[in-house]
């Protein structure tokens, strides 16, 4: 019985964590959909956003600093479009990828010059004692984070489906040339996609910061979200959500049950192992459509 409760607790923690992965993964999806580019800077953006929130909090309070950071990230989005995408338009995907690596370097440098290199604490005002459901203990912080992540994911889905900009984004993802022909402004949509990715970076930065503190390792969390994309199928939002939960659960269960035998650290690679299995047996992911190539 104890084992079962333990397993269920791990599972819920995992699923909550997984929702946060899904959210970060959506940041990648946004940029990837808008420009078929893997945005290496997403991790740096998360760090940048989290440091900005923490840095402004003593002056403006939580709400104020969040708003200010949104403004900062919007400026960043416009800058990114201006210095990375516009000059590199038409270059190969790898070249643009390298551009985002350069941009990440700039962001990391800037963030740490302005806000310092020390790891920062970021505490949201949430009671530490867990909620009790019968024998089951659930952390309020995890619950809150999962709720925020869930709202974000839902809002993004709604945005993609029901707004003109969302439609424009999908059109550009489908065929950039055709989208421009029908009058979609590529640059504006790109800047919006970057701004949204920035908003996701803020949410991810604050939620993860609350959990593990704000420091350099944050950039790596973004990379952990990548397997989620693969498992979910890159073109499916629902898939990304479910995949996030699967990865989170696999990590927590793996760490809890296997990790004790081989000395921990299972959660560092669990996501990638699951992703590799998917790549071998079902490359299009859970709900993704398999592509058919014509010669």
């Amino acid at each position: 019985m104890g084992d079962l409760i333990y397993a269920i607790e791990l599972l819920t923690t995992g699923v909550f964590t997984g929702l946060m992965y899904s959210m970060v993964a959506l940041g990648f999806v946004l940029i990837f959909k808008a420009s078929s580019v893997f945005n290496y800077a997403q991790g740096a953006m998360t760090l940048f956003a989290a440091l900005t929130v923490v840095g402004l909090m003593p002056h403006l309070g939580l709400a104020g600093s969040l708003l200010a950071t949104v403004a900062v990230m919007c400026v960043m989005a416009v800058v990114a479009e201006r210095i990375v995408f516009r000059p590199l338009m038409g270059a190969s995907q790898l070249t643009i990828f390298m551009g985002t690596v350069g941009f990440a370097s700039i962001l990391e440098g800037a963030a740490q010059i302005v806000w310092g290199t020390k790891p920062q604490g970021l505490k949201l005002d949430i009671p530490v004692e867990p909620l009790k459901f019968g024998e089951l203990l659930v952390s309020r912080q995890d619950l809150f984070a999962a709720a925020v992540a869930g709202v974000f994911v839902g809002a993004l889905v709604w945005f993609f489906r029901n707004t003109r900009t969302g439609l424009a984004l999908r059109a550009i993802a489908d065929d950039p040339a055709a989208a421009q022909v029908v009058g979609i402004k590529l640059r504006r949509v790109w800047a919006i996609a970057w701004a949204l990715a920035g908003a996701i970076a803020i949410a991810a930065g604050v939620l993860w910061g609350n959990r593990i503190g704000v420091h350099f390792a944050m950039s790596l969390i973004a990379l952990k979200a990548l397997p989620v994309l693969i498992i979910g199928g890159i073109d499916s939002v629902a898939g990304v959500i479910v995949a996030g939960m699967i990865v989170g659960a696999a990590e927590a269960l793996g760490e809890g049950f296997i990790g004790t035998y081989i000395g921990g650290g299972v959660q560092d690679v669990m996501a990638y192992i699951v992703a590799l299995l998917f790549l071998m047996f079902r490359p299009s992911g859970l709900f993704g459509q398999s592509t058919i190539l014509r010669v």
Binding site: I83, A104, G109, A110
Partner: peptide, 10 residues
Amino acid sequence: EHIVFGVLVL
């Protein structure tokens, strides 16, 4: 140095 490096790469 990070910033200059990024700018030069770009």
